[in-house]
Computed example of a mutant assay.
Amino acid sequence: MAAVVNEYPFSQVDVFAPGPKPGNPVAVVHDADGLSTEQMQSFANWTNLSETTFLLRPSHPDADYRLRIFTPRAEIPFAGHPTLGSAHAWLENGGQPQGEGELVQECGAGLVNIKRAEDGLSFAAPPLRRSGPVEPAVLEQAVASLGIGHEQVLGSNWVDNGPGWLGIRLATAQQVVNLEPDFSAMGDLLVGVIGAFDDGGPADFEVRAFAPGLDVPEDPVTGSLNAGLALWLRGEGVVAADYTVRQGTVLGRGGLVTVTSEAETMWVGGASRTVVRGVVGL
């Protein structure tokens, strides 16, 4: 006997892609309150994207909607490009936020503020769940898995706002591009690497994000990592109040992330566009 299949509105949104090259896609299932966790995880495994999200009715009175976020392997409390892509899809499908010019997402990391501007959406960088120095043995594993020497590392820190990111800073953007990581050596670590361009470069920094433990060896463009890096590097005086990041270069993507500062809040944003619209049977 065939299983009962229900249809749900579906969007696939490209995030952090201001030009002709693609950014990072997220699959978004709307009105997903009737789905079980097992169905969500199974569909996320099937899409095989770095994240698949499910829009639900909010449980918090201040939230406009609730979001659950899944990698192909596991649910995570927060991620950046799924936040922006899902907000874009929610608005495009008739969502009406309670606030003027901003919307509020409820997710595993709590409430996340998202603001609208002409050039796209931005989310407020959530507080770090884990920060501070990386334990020597963990740092040794991360550096070895990147195939570089400790003399190339200008700094390292936990920058975990949900997924579990560890941040490493190199001197130049080219060093970041040249990395050839050993994913088996990296294991379950989530490693983000940042390096600066010279003046006049395509952006201020190059970033790469590696998450083999989540079945995402290299994520094309990563909002959560960039949010964590922003809080860390601003605290150390490494970054200016506003800057830009290029990501996805090695994967042939054209990701561009903007980071802006307003008082104590760091906003991470970029362009989003819906590429696929339709329904899915789950």
Score class of each variant (00 low, 15 high):
Asp198Met: 10
Gly192Ala: 15
Leu179Trp: 13
Leu229Lys: 03
Leu233Tyr: 05
Thr222Gln: 04
Asn178Tyr: 00
Leu179Phe: 12
Trp158Asp: 10
Gly187Cys: 07
Val193Trp: 08
Ile194Ser: 08
Leu179Glu: 10
Val191Asp: 07
Gly167Ile: 09
Leu189Phe: 03
Asp219Gly: 12
Val221Ala: 11
Leu179Ile: 10
Leu225Lys: 00
Glu180Gln: 15
Thr222Tyr: 05
Phe205Trp: 15
Asp199Trp: 00
Pro202Ala: 12
Trp232Ile: 11
Leu190Cys: 10
Val193Gly: 04
Val207His: 03
Gly162Asn: 03
Phe205Ala: 04
Leu166Glu: 01
Val159Phe: 07
Leu189Trp: 04
Gln175Pro: 03
Leu166Pro: 01
Phe197Ser: 09
Leu229Phe: 15
Ser156Met: 03
Arg169Met: 14
Gly201Lys: 08
Phe205His: 14
Phe197Leu: 12
Asp198His: 11
Asp219Cys: 11
Asp199His: 06
Glu206Pro: 02
Gly213Ala: 12
Ala227Val: 02
Ala173Asp: 06
Asp198Trp: 00
Ala185Val: 06
Gly201Thr: 09
Ala173Val: 07
Glu180His: 14
Phe183Lys: 00
Ala185Thr: 06
Ala185Ile: 09
Ala196Glu: 14
Asp199Ser: 14
Val176Ser: 08
Asp160Tyr: 11
Gly200Ile: 10
Leu214Met: 13
Leu170Met: 09
Thr222Pro: 02
Leu189Pro: 03
Trp165Ile: 00
Asp198Arg: 14
Phe205Asn: 06
Ser156Phe: 07
Gln175His: 09
Gly162Leu: 09
Asp219Ser: 08
Asp188Val: 11
Asn157Val: 00
Ala211Gln: 06
Phe183Ile: 04
Phe210Val: 06
Thr172Gln: 10
Ala173Asn: 07
Pro181Val: 00
Val207Glu: 02
Gly223Pro: 08
Ala203Val: 12
Val221Cys: 13
Leu190His: 04
Leu214Phe: 11
Gly228Met: 05
Leu189Glu: 01
Glu218Ile: 10
Asp215Ser: 10
Ile168Asp: 01
Val193Phe: 05
Ala196Asp: 09
Val207Ala: 14
Leu214Gly: 00
Ala185Arg: 15
Gly164Val: 02
Ile194Val: 15
Leu166Cys: 08
Asn226Trp: 05
Arg234Glu: 11
Phe205Leu: 07
Gly162Glu: 02
Glu218Val: 06
Val159Asn: 11
Leu225Arg: 00
Leu166Asn: 05
Leu190Tyr: 05
Pro212Gln: 04
Ala185Asp: 12
Phe197His: 15
Gln175Met: 10
Arg208Asp: 02
Asp219Glu: 15
Pro220Leu: 14
Gly167Asp: 10
Gln174Arg: 13
Thr172Phe: 09
Phe183Gly: 02
Leu231Ser: 12
Phe197Tyr: 15
Leu229Gln: 05
Gly213Met: 07
Leu214Ser: 06
